[in-house]
Design a protein around this nucleic acid. Structure first.
Length: 575
RNA sequence: GCGCCUGUAGCUCAGUGGAUAGAGCACCGGAUUCCUAAUCCGGGUGCCGCAGGUUCGAUCCCUGCCAGGCGCACCA
């Protein structure tokens, strides 16, 4: 739809001999509105043709005739600027968006391919901290983005439900545990036990040894250990699911680390057969030195398994199960080495799909005082963040829109949206300093800013309906209307141009695994709408112009709504 | 010590091998007989960490250095 870049590619290809795709990818967006929608820099041709780029641009401009979709082509110094024919754009784009509504943006690019996304993965028996939010919201956004691009997506919550921390918890519970307190508030209580364990272990290092022993007992199917583990797991999972449901996030699989225990023997045997694993200091390792990586431990000297062994088994299992096109791990950057080792071992085991595994890393959330640490009890609970964000949103709504009927509902969308959006707006690779003032700042480039634009449009439509306007806006007769030269103010033109860029922004977000591109785009669109809103009255405009503007803002509403939905954020109709 | 990531305005961050490097916050001033002022308009800032290199052209690519973060055998 509206493949201007491709059209320009073919056009210039016939004149220059370049590949259409090469042309399309070299097209730039000019720095100023007056310079058209697309620009082709002629420096490259200047070299091959041995002529100044200015001359080439001028020659090309003279050769190109306007087309249905192209109003004009002008040279400006070394650039060739393309001006899209506005009425053509309006009459194609706006009816398309309004016709498809909630489905606008969906395409079939990923048809027949499966993408598996491993995200969130909280540790059982530890509270869901603000740190886990990043993996959760980035993964969820990627899930939705790939889904709208036509991929079959499998969301996997690789629960941290195995490992030596369970040895610690079992020891702590056996020493100091209290059943009624566990029932009361399982996750927080288990967390307190975990912190207590580390405090006590500093004074009494034997506890660490005891914990290792109990984890080993667990792996050996010791009855008491298994019973406790099952209990901790079930209670924690229940609370996590409650939280996911509140966040509006679902998973297709909750197969965590423990699920792969039964596959570990096979996996290790396979690695040994391939000559990858060998004994060293009593443990089993994969020597990756020839590949510039540190050796990787597959099995401890006491026979207990490790995280990476379960990850190996999980990757193989997932390939057998899903035949994925890509397997994405949305996991913090501090585990980069782990994934390098994992992918390398898979490759050495002969799995060609190892190259389809991607670590989607993201930066740390830290405090001024230092990094977060579960063991030291230095964490921020996600629930506290959400509660405060929702309270604040509620108070602002009460103040700004006292007559609003469903304040709690709007406050939930706005508060939740602000927290999620705040996490997605910046490049995921950057570290984030946790700051209450920033988390609770609803002004500027935030979800509420985008949501407010959406709510304003909805408000205009409510009023239009009350005034007897046919707000369903049947689109058949709109092309003529749009051809007639409406929507020609700078604000309107800019708004349509930005609207038209949605699809390529979604694609870019998918290609680069960066939801931030989409979030930034939505801020741009909301900003362009707000400028329009202040300069172009809709309801008081003359009839035809009014209908053209209604059509325009209906398109904006749909794109804001769909775009936010891709980020896992709801768009309130009033706020 | 080695490896990976980051370094852009007072703060938080966008950005692109190319046209004058942009937003938000903060600060000051202005806009509401009119569709929600959670908005809009105006006001000013930059050795794009430093030094080389590649290039017609580098904030962007390469090398070295500096600063911060993360990681490097029995945690996940």
């Amino acid at each position: 739809m509206l493949a201007f870049k491709e059209e320009i590619g073919y056009l210039l290809s016939s004149l220059t001999g370049m590949h259409p795709g090469e042309v399309a990818s070299s097209l730039e967006i000019p720095p100023e509105p007056g310079l058209g929608e697309y620009a082709f820099p002629c420096y490259g041709l200047a070299r091959s043709q041995k002529k100044p780029p200015q001359v080439i641009a001028a020659e090309l401009a003279a050769k190109i005739k306007p087309a249905e979709y192209l109003e004009k082509v002008q040279s400006a110094g070394p650039y060739l600027n393309f001006y899209v024919h506005r009425p053509y754009l309006f009459s194609r784009l706006l009816p398309e968006i309004t016709r498809l509504g909630p489905e606008y943006g969906r395409n079939g690019e990923g048809q027949g391919h499966t993408v598996v996304i491993d995200y969130s993965a909280p540790n059982i028996a530890k509270p869901f901290g603000i740190g886990h939010l990043r993996s959760t919201v980035i993964g969820n956004a990627l899930y939705r983005i790939y889904n709208i691009m036509g991929y079959r997506v499998v969301g996997v919550n690789h629960l941290g439900d195995w490992g030596t921390q369970f040895g610690k918890l079992i020891v702590a519970y056996r020493h100091w545990g209290d059943n009624s307190r566990l029932e009361e508030d399982p996750v927080h209580y288990l967390y307190n036990l975990y912190v207590l364990f580390h405090k006590e272990a500093e004074k009494n290092p034997e506890l660490e040894e005891e914990a290792r022993l109990w984890f080993r007992n667990l792996e050996m199917n010791d009855k008491e250990a298994v019973q406790l583990w099952e209990r901790f797991r079930a209670l924690s999972l229940e609370e996590f699911k409650r939280l996911y449901s509140f966040l509006g996030i679902q998973f297709d699989s909750y197969q965590g680390e423990s699920f792969y225990n039964r596959l570990l023997e096979k996996t290790i045997t396979l690695a040994v057969e391939k000559g990858l694993a060998k004994e060293s200091q009593g443990a089993l390792i994969a020597d990756l030195e020839p590949y510039g990586l540190p050796p990787c431990l597959l099995r401890k000297k006491d026979g207990a398994t490790l995280y990476i062994t379960r990850d190996l088994a999980a990757a193989i299992y997932r390939y057998e199960q899903y035949r994925f096109h890509k397997l994405l791990y949305v996991v913090g950057a501090e585990q980069t080495l782990h994934f390098k080792q994992l992918f390398k071992i898979l490759e050495l085991m002969g799995y060609s799909w190892a190259r389809d595994c991607v670590h989607i890393s993201f930066g740390l959330i830290y405090f001024k005082e230092g990094r977060m640490s579960t063991r030291e009890g230095r964490v921020i609970f996600l629930e506290d963040v959400l509660n405060r964000a929702l309270d604040l949103a509620y108070n602002i709504i009460k103040e700004k829109n006292p007559d609003l009927l469903h304040k709690e509902k709007a406050a939930r969308m706005v508060g939740l949206g602000a927290v999620i959006f705040g996490d997605l707006i910046n490049d995921r690779i950057k570290d984030i300093e946790f700051d209450w003032d920033k988390v609770l700042d609803f002004s500027g480039e935030t979800a509420p800013y985008v949501q407010y634009a959406h709510a304003r449009i909805c408000s205009i439509f409510r009023k239009a309906a009350r005034e007897g306007e046919d707000v369903s806006l049947p689109v058949d007769n709109f092309p003529d209307l749009l051809e007639a030269g409406f929507l020609s103010s700078p604000e309107e033109e800019q708004l349509v141009i930005t609207l038209a860029r949605f699809v390529e922004q979604v694609r870019r977000a998918a290609q680069e695994y960066r939801p931030s591109y989409l979030a930034r785009y939505l801020v741009d669109l909301a900003r362009d709408f707000n400028k329009f809103y202040h300069n172009c009255p809709v309801l008081t405009a003359e009839k035809s112009l009014r209908r053209a503007r209604l059509l325009l803002i209906k398109g904006v509403r749909i794109v804001l709504h769909n775009g936010l939905a891709l980020l896992g954020i709801e768009a309130p109709e009033e706020m």
